[in-house]
Design a binder for these strands. Structure first.
Lengths: 131, 131
DNA sequence: ATTGGTGCAAATGCTTTGCATAAAG
DNA sequence: CTTTATGCAAAGCATTTGCACCAAT
């Protein structure tokens, strides 16, 4: 995979952000360093980088995909209100594979725990707006 | 929630199918019983039914959402090749909450294990086509 | 020099919406 | 009779793609 400044900066900024940004959020950040970059380049590189295992594509929750520059094994919580994703600190996740009784012929490659909840921001919003 | 024949049949067919269909797959099935139904009605009802907790919306994997008429607690495997989703039989999932060490202020509502793998169909396809 | 990547704009595909009509309670 | 749901077509939005140009090796 050829190293271009676009690819380098996209990876760098994604690894720096701890917010699991969507493609367009990351695009806005990268644009500050590369004002002429196209959103298509961001999408293409996020795809390539995740194929290469250098980042993770998070497909749960909401319409937009989110991306994670941290590929170490960890779990996520997704806010059911706003779609925000945060890391959840857990004890060793991998023992979870032990709970499988029947995987219906699938060859299992990966497993993870996924949590859904309400993020601190949305909890706060509920208190003040009573919605 | 008003009971219409559309809503009734959509729920009935989704509960009958064990395939976690996409909205358009379910539309095709429902159309056999209600030839004049609109895809918009299918989408609207799937939304309403999942808000009401009568079905589950599965948002992981691929572009299309999938739906599950079985709301009992269970885990899923998603095929990374074709997006197909199957149930995974596991021992009691809920003990998984015990692994949480820090949930970053989120109020956790739900948790589940998610597996990714390759389904039997795609495994077979690989053998014959060697791709 | 060759191959792969980029920017742009147009296309795609899934999902949602506005609106007039129809059905449910 | 009032309210909610439906069908249709159009709009929306995130993502992908075709193509001519450019840059990395």
């Amino acid at each position: 995979m050829r190293i271009t400044s676009q690819r380098e900066i996209i990876l760098e900024e994604l690894q720096r952000l701890k917010t699991h940004p969507t493609a367009d959020e990351l695009y806005e950040v990268v644009k500050k360093r590369l004002p002429r970059i196209s959103i298509a380049t961001v999408y293409r590189n996020l795809e390539r980088l995740s194929e290469a295992g250098m980042i993770h594509k998070l497909e749960y929750g909401g319409r937009q995909k989110r991306f994670d520059g941290d590929t170490s094994p960890h779990s996520h919580v997704v806010c059911v209100r706003c779609g925000r994703i945060s890391d959840v600190e857990t004890r060793d996740d991998m023992e979870i594979l032990d709970i499988v009784v029947d995987s219906k012929g699938y060859q299992i490659l990966k497993c993870g725990v996924q949590f859904e909840g309400i993020c601190p921001f949305c909890q706060e919003r509920s208190k003040s707006k009573k919605d």
